[in-house]
Design a protein around this nucleic acid. Sequence first.
DNA 1: ATAATGTTTAACAGCTTTGTTAATACATCG
DNA 2: CGATGTATTAACAAAGCTGTTAAACATTAT
Lengths: 215, 215
Amino acid sequence: MVKINGQKTAGQNDTERKIMEAAEEMFLRNGYNMTTTTMIARKAGVTHAMLHYYYRTKEQIFIKVLDRNLDELLASFHPVMKKDAPFWETLESGISTHFDFLMKHPELPTFILDTMRFNPELLESYKPRIRETLLRITGFHFSIIKDEIAAGKIREVDPEQLLLDIITLNLSAFIMLPPARKVFTEISDTRNRQILENRKKEIIALIKSRLYGKL
Amino acid sequence: MVKINGQKTAGQNDTERKIMEAAEEMFLRNGYNMTTTTMIARKAGVTHAMLHYYYRTKEQIFIKVLDRNLDELLASFHPVMKKDAPFWETLESGISTHFDFLMKHPELPTFILDTMRFNPELLESYKPRIRETLLRITGFHFSIIKDEIAAGKIREVDPEQLLLDIITLNLSAFIMLPPARKVFTEISDTRNRQILENRKKEIIALIKSRLYGKL
DNA sequence: ATAATGTTTAACAGCTTTGTTAATACATCG
DNA sequence: CGATGTATTAACAAAGCTGTTAAACATTAT
């Protein structure tokens, strides 16, 4: 299938690439079960036999899509905080970076949530890697937060709850708001961007007062 | 089938009721598309022809399930705040009540989200009622919050953002955490309750410091 | 040119889905 | 009892799904 200089471009040929792109788009938007191989093929402009020719089964092409997104998936948990620079500045920029990342991959949270919910077996082989990443990150942040509490610099919060606050608030903007808007208010692209920016500011303000607000 | 005195039981007979119960359980857990009429019938212990006999189509039985849950659905937006009693006390109890309500109907948020996402047309007829409720509630809360800000009692927050904070935080605990636990950590029922209680406390603390914390 | 290899199509197989229907069992009531 | 309307079953039909296959077509190498 891979032709080097005759006709086809290096790597994948056109059909294979179009199928993968269509599959990625559909799976990300609708999840594994709600996407049919026929739909993917139609969107790619080929017969569905081609999908099976290149990727064998629906599950295998899904796994390939998962692979393509796994690094980003893990990155999505990642950069809530960085180094041992000033605590709040790095935390704030961490939340912001995380939110910005989600703005660039707005469908990723729902995609992962769907897969966890309906097809956890497809994540089985990734579990160790995900778990390991997660533990490393939480461990890292927990210790920094505890240090900061011990030094009396921030309020006494449960580090686990704080991370949950940040992550769920950020993800909510991408998991819950789009369907809600689908029912309640249709909205333009720029307006959407604006709303998300406001949301980001609010989330940061929320976390800041949780840590530094004196009651 | 089951007659009590040679008469049918008042209202629904046993089969009809069992089908409805099975349908409600399945639709709430898996949504419209991921539930098949055959699965419902099997769970109810009848042939799937009975489902069509009593409810005609899958869509019609789904609508009936939606009806049965609509009041609760609307209630789920409802009691974030009550009257003109002391502001924070009522807000706190409102958040708490809302959270407790969700604990009693933990599948409702995901159910509605699913329906908004994949079958918004099935919500079409409920839109006016939902919109009206929503507007009434937001209008009510906005004015109270604005009054409180004007009186200098709480920090200057965007009321819309504040309600989004509360609602998304509460819903997150039921939409995002269960699938996450499915993948990362299986957990007992009492432990789950404990986690949710902690989460509730954290959410309340978060909102409180947002409103009253001095930076 | 021709053989070998790779790509694409159309048709089909087997399964599952929603929904219908004809036949049958059943209860109730006159 | 027998007539009548209801409840139930099994079988079926049409459509869509995933996946396979044989044959046609294209490309490359010999």
